[in-house]
Design a binder for these strands. Structure first.
Lengths: 205, 205
DNA sequence: GAGAGCATGTAATCAGTTACATGATTAC
DNA sequence: GTAATCATGTAACTGATTACATGCTCTC
């Protein structure tokens, strides 16, 4: 019991030091290009990375306060008629924190969505580092793909496959998705023509 | 204020009626095949659908209690040496609830992971309904893909594309992923050979 | 006898959504 | 004038993780 309490304190301090979540960096990344209101930050997120990250006001505004506390952003209040707008600006500390995060290797366990949220800002990085990071991530994906392929082989040795067609199909889903993302990594890490990624498909219009 | 309170009550009652989350159905689906302990349910989830659903004991055990309350499962305690095992069995009410969920159309806004968690259990459904549900889901994906393709066209009209190569690449990521999943849907809804989904790739061994 | 894995759970915390609450501005 | 959108937030709740807490059983 005494032990658990001290562990707990240790955790809190760890979180306090390292503690910043994905959305914090996304906010910093968006403010890096231009100062915006909370409302506009949300719109930018919606337009740009809605596909792999959703931000509601309920999570956005409290995080803006947190970033103010950390002095990663500062806030300038502007009068627009009767309405007051709070324009958030990134500080130099905020820029450093953001670039530090952006340059860092991707944590092995992170999701494709977290990876893509980072890639979204890679135009702010050198080609060299961006490519290294994407190639690193590709390696994770290839390892994962090989695991799934092994798993599939185990499945294929079983009898009565028609009885678990759909179970097996979800495994193929994973393989499909991984393969297409690996192709994406190979194209993007070499900064090749993106158009080549598009498959010829009928029926999408 | 008075209004908000009544809304709140309304919400609670709504949730009470409809309230079951994905993991509850996954547990029911797993118990549908065989009775298991909480520990073994987790292992089954890990082996089968870890790819798109993670379940920790912290979420699993409280849900098992909830399912007991609802009488969707019952629990038989067995003595194994000095250790007591709690074997959970699905009840007929539980089976009905599970099949009802499994047969239902997929909610338009649901993620691919939620969709796949359902497909994982489609072997318990007729071929006809399974196919209809997958084709329905494919339509959502095609709509979404068309939105992204439109977005890409807007992007392509902008000058200085090399300045936002990575921003654009995340859009291509979405397109790639959607295309591969649409292919998957077309194969699986027709119950075609899954092997055809695998792309010829070098470097995965 | 030590360590991996079996087995069951709770408490604290976290990250995020939804509903609530308010009111100004713009376009029709 | 009214509906959509701009704009800022808070409170309650949800769904889930992680750490804590405990102790058995099997394998080496």
């Amino acid at each position: 019991m005494t032990c658990s309490k001290s562990y707990c304190i240790f955790n809190i301090s760890l979180r306090y030091i390292g503690g910043a979540n994905l959305l914090e960096y996304i906010i910093l990344g968006i403010l890096y290009s231009k100062p915006l209101t909370g409302y506009d930050i949300r719109k930018d997120i919606e337009i740009g990375i809605d596909m792999f990250y959703k931000a509601s006001y309920g999570s956005l505004y409290p995080l803006l306060s947190k970033l103010l506390d950390k002095q990663y952003v500062c806030c300038v209040e502007e009068q627009h008629g009767k309405r007051m707008k709070k324009i958030y600006h990134i500080t130099s500390e905020g820029k450093n924190a953001f670039i530090g995060w952006l340059e860092a290797p991707i944590e092995p366990g992170s999701s494709m969505e977290a990876f893509m949220a980072r890639v979204y800002f890679y135009d702010k990085l050198s080609y060299k580092i961006s490519s290294i990071r994407i190639v690193e991530y590709e390696k994770h994906l290839v390892d994962y793909l090989n695991d799934l392929i092994k798993k599939r082989e185990q499945f294929m040795n079983l009898p009565n496959q028609e009885q678990f067609y759909y179970k097996l199909s979800t495994l193929y889903f994973g393989i499909c998705k991984l393969q297409s993302i690996i192709m994406w990594c190979r194209t993007v890490s070499g900064r090749n023509e993106l158009e080549s990624l598009i498959l010829p498909m009928n029926g999408e219009e």
